[in-house]
Amino acid sequence: MNKKRLGLISFFVLLFSMNAFTQHISDLRLNEMLINNVDNYIDEYGRHVPWIEIFNSAYNNIDVAECYLTNDTTGLADGSGIKNWYRIPKGDPKTLLSQRSFVVFYMDNAPLYGTFHVNFDPCEEGSSNYVALISSNGRTLIDIFEFPEQLRTSTEHSYGYFDDGIKGVEDANGNTVSNKGFLDYFTPGSTNSVFMGLTKSEKVAQEDPYGLGLAFISMSVVFIALILIYLMLKLFARMNRGKAAKPAHGEVKTDAVVPKTKVIAEEFTGEELAAITMALHLHVSGQHDEESEVITIETPSAHYSPWSQKQLTFKQSPYKK
């Protein structure tokens, strides 16, 4: 009983799996086309030739190999037209389209140039105003792409679906209308739904013409950033204060020196204090009295200030004790 149930489950799982991985060839769409290719997409030989784009609208891989491309569907009913159509060769890995991807075929009537060069040219006299994609059985029409006569002369716009592979959209009245037309941008091998919106700068210019909004936001962000640092430093100070409150072992805490410092600061000028500090520094660091240079507190004759020397305004690099 269990074996039978297991077998049934396995069968259905296999069935669904097969369904999931089945290639939906009908999901292929002829998506965009350009005939009068003057300065647009070039083929691998550096030529500007008419091109058509196929879009895999499915969410699984589809191989377009062995399908047919043509601009003359005569013989479609009984499959007798296959000898005149371009059969996409088998064996080229590039014919396997991954989900939602694109491939471009050159309509240059030069099939010997490679897999993606078909055997017809829409520029030829008397050629039809459509291109058809037919399945490998030669009888099933996968997609047909009709185009207006103006496409033959258009150099500025290609023709295709505004949204990749979507043939009709609802208008304001709920009626389905064609989603096909001349596109603003050539997009061979990529999506047609190119949104060329405003640049950031244009958007700012439009929404904030006087710059007040940007100034307010920016100043706020600058303040927030620096307030965050301020809070961090306050935390540092608090931590440090805790340490400073505790006198080191054996030390006697006294603030008797502070009033003296105040008196000194008020009695002497800056130059005198600088000289005293320098003398103390030399004394503490044990430097010899007889220096090779003259130390003076006189104002230099040139227009010069030690503060104009950047290196003097910063402390020496610390050394590890």
Binding site: G211, S218, M219, A225, L226, I227, I229, Y230, F236
Partner: peptide, 15 residues
């Protein structure tokens, strides 16, 4: 640390 806020205020020149 409160001096850092002066550095923020002076950026008004930019905007």
């Amino acid at each position: 640390p409160k001096l850092i806020l002066i550095g923020a205020a002076a950026q008004f020149g930019i905007f």
